[in-house]
Design a protein around this nucleic acid. Structure first.
Lengths: 166, 166
DNA sequence: TCGTACTAGATGCAAATGCATCTACCTTTC
DNA sequence: GAAAGGTAGATGCATTTGCATCTAGTACGA
């Protein structure tokens, strides 16, 4: 299938692609964090609100939420406690699993998320739009979605070749 | 130049591209952190060593280093102190600026960085290679480098169309 | 040369984080 | 259905983080 050389080349290429990806992410993030409107909530906290806002049913299991974040389980547990005290989220015991906890935004939490979200989106736009045109943005989205899908176990269908199934 | 509609479209596109980018980054990072070999050093700490390893002269100003990281200045100050105590980095006063501090890896620091770096690269490869082929990886690198260049103030030459200048 | 404004790092302190562990609940096996 | 093993989330505790502030050194203007 792949010769030694192509193997090595790919190794270097993955490393370089990741380095660029990582640096770009840090670069954008640094500038977003700088936005004074974001003093109100940590980036990590906003991320929780954002993830909740994306949940169609409105309620998410704590452990599921944790899978989309970079913080540890105990940290999330306490962060949620704080957000609850601020009145931004609410908890309830899970139906099917008595040890589980489900989480959702409160009205206020949803409002805050929307407000910060708008600012956030504007900031992102100001940073990305000058750098990449519409087609390139679409490429970024496509490539990143593909990567994400692969991480999540989908043996990526890609274009043409038949995916082996798990 | 751009109608209202194209403006809105671009706004949505930038947001979507960023969301995918961010999620992919988190997804990869979560898995990398999981690597047991990385208990030795925090991701953030490794990032410092990595950045130092990339500095051609070997020595970097603390404030310059800080610009490539997501942590605050005081946090970096203390992290460096800890890394110094561990014998991984060394400080010296800057030549031209008496208040400044320059930083470099020690022999041991360089060795640790290389060792972890290899593990890191392998992990990255295992995650990215199944997801994206060589051409796609090249696209990722190109797009991210373009984004990064734009963030850093280069009014990107791009291909063809003339960029409006700030 | 002095005085004011600014930048590089360090430090006090409160808050947030992670690790290890704990409790409660679920699942599997016999 | 009882014991053993596993998962969800909470908590004690030491470490790390960030904010505000401080000190020392630089740059600029009169």
């Amino acid at each position: 299938m792949s010769s030694e050389t192509s193997q090595l080349t790919t190794m270097k290429q993955t490393a370089e692609a990741w380095e660029s990806l990582f640096r770009a992410q840090v670069g954008v993030m640094r500038r977003l964090q700088r936005d004074p409107e974001f003093k109100e909530l940590t980036m990590r906290e906003y991320d929780v609100l954002f993830n909740l806002s994306r949940c169609p049913s409105g309620w998410t299991r704590l452990n599921e939420l944790n899978e989309h974040l970079l913080i540890s389980q105990p940290s999330l547990s306490r962060m949620v406690e704080r957000l609850e005290n601020k009145g931004l989220v609410q908890r309830r015991p899970a139906r099917n699993d008595q040890r589980g906890v489900e989480l959702s935004l409160t009205e206020e939490g949803r409002a805050v998320q929307k407000r910060l979200g708008r600012i956030h989106v504007r900031g992102i736009h100001d940073l990305l739009a000058p750098a990449l045109d519409a087609q390139e943005l679409a490429q970024v989205k496509e490539l990143m979605d593909k990567l994400l899908a692969s991480l999540n176990g989908d043996t990526a269908p890609g274009s043409g070749t038949r995916p082996g199934e798990a």
